[in-house]
């Protein structure tokens, strides 16, 4: 065997474990999702081939299309709050933690602490704190700032926002760690040189610091994008599958769950076929954004 062939074989052998794992855990389920999306299946008994009927139901039926678009729009709103909080507040905290100040390590641990918690624990904590009779409402009432308890957990206007804020707090540790790691890579000699050359503070941040931080921002953006468009922990745990009140906390993850498993005797499942369609549409919506971000990082 020539050296070139040997090199090629070695490369293939090294790639093989990753390819096999990817095929089993990513590609296989994706093909399964495609297969299931053209079938009607309630999860029991056999599957019936229905062609594009499931896609037609979600995209062309007035009732289901309205439900899907509402969940999609609310998901974008939910994601926008979280990613803005993580990038703005996360960068600020990471910058603060990058300075050599007393107690820096303790603060790092403190900020990272919520991240390993289970979603259910965080949801329970939120319910305790913002319950109608919880400490926040009690305090506001005792200070005379409100006449009636604020409906944090059951309002069409603010409950999804509350979930987004708590999700931001929950994921903040992850964003801080990523951004902090990037800050460490900023070359201080370049910043100092820029100042000596007459650069203003904002110019130094914009042209030297941000380009170094950008890959970390992209990673945070992609991971949070995929997370918030595929999961609906808080909605399912607090508002339950009905995503009330009046579907105001419905996002794509809860819409998919409700389609697959239903939300009670009169809010029945639409079947795994329809749920697969929602999963595929979600992937189609977020995949290009995630791929573009990833490509940008690879180019760097």
């Amino acid at each position: 065997m020539s050296y070139k062939s040997l090199e090629k074989t070695q490369l293939w052998l090294m790639l093989l474990p990753g390819v096999i794992l990817y095929a089993i855990f990513n590609f296989g389920p994706l093909v399964g999702l495609l297969y299931m999306s053209v079938h009607e299946w309630s999860g029991i008994g056999g599957m019936t081939f229905v062609g594009l009927d499931n896609f037609r139901l979600i995209l062309l039926d007035d009732f289901y299309r309205a439900g899907f678009l509402k969940a999609l729009w609310q998901n974008i709103y939910f994601f926008a709050i979280i990613i803005t909080s993580l990038l703005v507040i996360g960068t600020f905290i990471a910058l603060m933690l990058s300075f050599k100040v007393y107690g820096r390590k303790q603060y790092q641990i403190l900020y990272f602490l919520p991240y390993p918690l289970a979603g259910a624990a965080v949801a329970y904590l939120m319910m305790l704190i913002f319950d109608t009779n919880g400490p926040v409402n009690s305090t506001l009432l005792s200070w005379g700032w409100i006449d009636r308890p604020v409906n944090f957990m059951g309002s069409e206007d603010i409950t999804l926002m509350m979930y987004a804020f708590f999700m931001s707090w929950y994921r903040m540790g992850f964003a801080i760690v990523m951004i902090l790691a990037a800050i460490v890579a900023v070359r201080t000699d370049l910043v100092e040189a820029a100042f000596l050359d007459g650069a203003k503070r904002w110019q130094a941040i914009r042209h030297i610091v941000f380009p170094v931080l950008m890959p970390a921002f992209v990673v945070v953006f992609i991971i949070i994008l995929v997370d918030t468009f595929n999961n609906a922990d808080f909605t399912l745990l607090i508002s339950e599958a009905q995503a009330g009140p009046n579907r105001s906390t419905d996002i794509l993850g809860s819409y998919l769950y409700r389609s697959a498993f239903g939300a009670g005797p009169q809010d029945l499942a639409l079947g795994y076929g329809v749920a697969s369609v929602i999963g595929l549409l979600t992937a189609i919506i977020i995949a290009p954004v995630a791929a573009l971000g990833a490509m940008r990082n690879i180019k760097k």
């Binding site: 957990m153 059951g154 339950e240 009905q242 009140p245 009670g264 009169q266 809010d267």
Partner: peptide, 9 residues
């Protein structure tokens, strides 16, 4: 009022 099944049934 948070439980839809309760409200309708």
């Amino acid at each position: 009022g948070q439980a839809g099944w309760y409200l309708n049934q």
